[in-house]
């Protein structure tokens, strides 16, 4: 479906188009929300808040060419707002929520999927063990695939800073993956 037409129809108040848009971006928005959430339930709430905010600002949407980076920016702002609001309240019970993320890759064959899911699980756990700054720059640049310029605009830092921060975060992630692999093989032996 052509995104530009879809956005136009949404702006005109076509509820069917809005539904299609929500379906198209649901997983992406949920993924962004997951970067700021302590668990799947909170990510789900955040994703809903993001869509509600999106809906309320229909008149001010970015054009189709720049829609995804713009959406990422809006999503991030909503998440940060909600987290700021939540800071006043004590955090909900901090269960080991990592295992509850659904990381299955639906396209792969069963055996390939099992292996792929295991590897993704490892990277995902490593990712979630990183600090907020590292996680965020990875989410924006490596996961959502935004350009250095786009990430710099969102984070309001120079491009060089994004580049160095991103490289540092990637190395941290790789080291964390190695550490988790090590602890896994030790535990298995």
């Amino acid at each position: 479906m052509d995104l530009a037409s879809l956005l136009d129809r949404c702006r005109q108040g076509d509820d069917l188009a809005w539904e299609a848009l929500v379906r198209q971006f649901e997983r992406r928005v949920y993924s962004i929300a997951s970067g700021y959430a302590s668990g799947p339930d909170e990510a789900r709430d955040l994703a809903q808040d993001i869509f509600v905010r999106l809906y309320e600002s229909r008149g001010k949407w970015a054009p189709a060419e720049g829609f995804t980076p713009w959406l990422v920016r809006v999503a991030r702002n909503v998440c940060l707002d909600q987290l700021r609001r939540k800071k006043a309240r004590p955090p909900a019970e901090d269960i080991q929520a990592d295992e509850m993320w659904d990381l299955a890759s639906p396209d792969a064959s069963p055996e390939a999927e099992l292996e792929a899911t295991g590897r993704r699980q490892l990277v995902w756990r490593a990712l979630r063990s990183l600090g907020g700054l590292s996680r965020e720059v990875l989410q924006l640049k490596e996961i959502q695939g935004l350009s250095l310029q786009e990430v710099a605009a969102i984070l309001r830092v120079p491009i060089g800073t994004v580049k160095s921060r991103s490289n540092r975060a990637r190395l941290e992630l790789a080291e964390q993956v190695l550490a988790l692999k090590g602890s896994r093989t030790e535990g298995g032996a």
Binding site: R27, R44, A47, Q48, R120, I143, L178
Partner: peptide, 29 residues
């Protein structure tokens, strides 16, 4: 490890919530 995580990170760009959120979003909006 860096090469592998670099290859896998984009696969997290879209994640499926365990329960679809479309219905709730539509109800809320």
């Amino acid at each position: 490890a860096l090469a592998e995580s670099t290859r896998l990170l984009p696969s997290f760009a879209e994640l499926a919530p365990r329960e679809g959120i479309v219905r709730d979003v539509l109800a809320a909006t």
